[in-house]
């Protein structure tokens, strides 16, 4: 798969040019805020951001959550914050791109949960009230996928 029209282009070994359009940047600034708010409100849509380690052992799971809950939330918040801060940067580093990939994944996890996404799912009709959300969800997948092509050489 190629991303010839990706808005992020490699310009050197460790730098990338951000060619996102203004309307894309505006959208991408709003979405992390929604995820951050969902985390703060403990929305049911953030369950995929906090998966259980011991799904069949409540006692063991409680111990894990006691140790990790704040740190895991903080980790997600830092990634989303780092993404938001760098959206307007013209030049991105490899670390910036890695942060974008993780933030886009967090956003997609929340949206995918809210939209009840499943594999082989077709885009709903344009008359469906969720059509616009699915267009955004697919756009995020496309953007994340294009960035992963860069990181595949860095991992």
């Amino acid at each position: 798969m190629t991303h010839a029209h990706s808005p992020i282009r490699r310009i050197s070994e460790d730098q990338f040019r951000n060619l996102l359009r203004e309307e894309e940047k505006e959208l991408l600034k709003i979405l992390p805020e929604l995820v951050e708010e969902a985390i703060r409100m403990n929305s049911p849509y953030v369950t995929r951001l906090f998966p259980p380690t011991y799904p069949f052992d409540d006692s063991a799971q409680a111990k894990v959550e006691k140790c990790r809950s704040d740190s895991l939330a903080k980790q997600h918040m830092e990634v989303l914050g780092g993404f938001t801060k760098s959206i307007n940067q013209e030049i991105l580093s490899v670390q910036d791109v890695a942060t974008w990939v993780e933030a886009l994944n967090d956003i997609r996890l929340l949206m995918g949960t809210a939209l009840d996404v499943y594999e082989d799912m077709d885009l709903p009709s344009e008359n469906d009230p969720k059509f616009g959300d699915f267009v955004i969800y697919n756009y995020l997948a496309w953007l994340q996928s294009s960035l992963l092509e860069f990181l595949a050489h860095e991992a």
Partner: peptide, 12 residues
């Protein structure tokens, strides 16, 4: 497995 994470992301 889950339906949201992209295959290249998991590999990465």
């Amino acid at each position: 497995n889950d339906p949201i994470n992209l295959i290249p992301y998991v590999t990465y």
